[in-house]
Structures are given as structure tokens and as C-alpha cells.
Amino acid sequence: MSSLWIGVGALALMNFSFKAIGPVLFARWEIPAKTASVINAAGQCLLVSLVVVAVIGEEGADLDKTVLAGLASGVVLRLMKQHDLVCVVGAMATVALMRALM
């Protein structure tokens, strides 16, 4: 198993732990909405940074234009407020189409 997947698993476990411990420790306090949104976005930001590093590679040596096109289409779908599954399938379809055309 690669170190990337170990890192993803560790981040997912940490994210779950932080989300579970917070309500237990601060059951009587209400966290402001902006603070809660920052806490929820932290795990996603770390995961995205791992994906970007995996796609680009060390010093851009592993850069694959088809994967970049797939990521771009996934981002566009997400900005259009599509469901997560639609974004993933759209990104996969874009990569498959790009690789078939090249």
C-alpha cells in the first residue's frame, strides 16, 4: 500500500476523531457557524492537497494532462452544485474520453 493511501486513511481517521470528540467536549457550548464551516473544510482541504501532489508528482515530472482535465471538469460540476457522485463520474468520464482521443 502506498504512503499516499496511508496518509488518506490517517487523515480520514483524524477527521472522524475530531468531529466525534468536539461535541462530547463542548456539548454545552454552541460553536459559531463560521467556525464550524472552517473545521468542516479543514479535512477536505488536506485531502485535496494530497490529491494535487499525487497528480502533479515531484517537481511536475508526473503531470498528466488527461487527469488535469478530469479534475477541472469535476471542479466545474461541483461549482454548478452537482452531487458528489455526479462530479466523480463526470471527472472519470472526462479522463476516459481524453485518453481515448489521444
Rank of each mutant, 00 (worst) to 15 (best):
V89T: 13
M92W: 10
L101I: 10
S17F: 15
G74H: 03
V51I: 14
V95A: 13
E59H: 15
F16Q: 11
D64E: 08
V89P: 04
A12T: 13
L13K: 06
A20M: 15
N15L: 12
S49G: 09
W29E: 14
M92Y: 08
T66K: 07
A36M: 09
W29S: 11
L79C: 05
E30S: 11
D62M: 04
R28V: 10
V95G: 06
V38N: 05
L13W: 12
A42I: 02
Q82G: 02
A42Y: 00
D64Q: 10
V55H: 09
R28P: 00
C45T: 12
C45D: 03
L63T: 02
A93L: 14
N40I: 01
A36Q: 08
G57I: 04
D62Y: 01
L13Y: 12
T66P: 00
G22R: 15
R28L: 06
G70Q: 01
M80I: 00
D84Y: 08
A41N: 05
M80L: 13
G70D: 05
M80N: 08
L63H: 01
V88E: 03
V75W: 03
M14W: 14
A36C: 01
A36P: 00
R28M: 04
F26T: 09
L68P: 06
E58D: 14
A61T: 10
L85I: 15
A10N: 10
V95P: 06
F16C: 13
D62C: 02
A96H: 12
C87L: 07
L101T: 03
P23A: 07
L71V: 10
L63A: 06
V75M: 07
R78L: 04
D64S: 12
A96M: 13
V67S: 03
H83F: 05
L13H: 10
M14N: 07
V38E: 06
G57T: 08
P32Q: 03
G9Q: 07
V48D: 00
Q44V: 14
R28N: 11
R78A: 07
V24W: 14
C87G: 04
I31R: 07
L71D: 04
K81V: 04
A69P: 02
F16W: 15
V75D: 01
P23R: 10
L11H: 08
S73N: 13
A36V: 01
I39L: 12
D84Q: 08
A100R: 09
L79D: 00
V55F: 14
M92I: 14
G57M: 09
A69H: 01
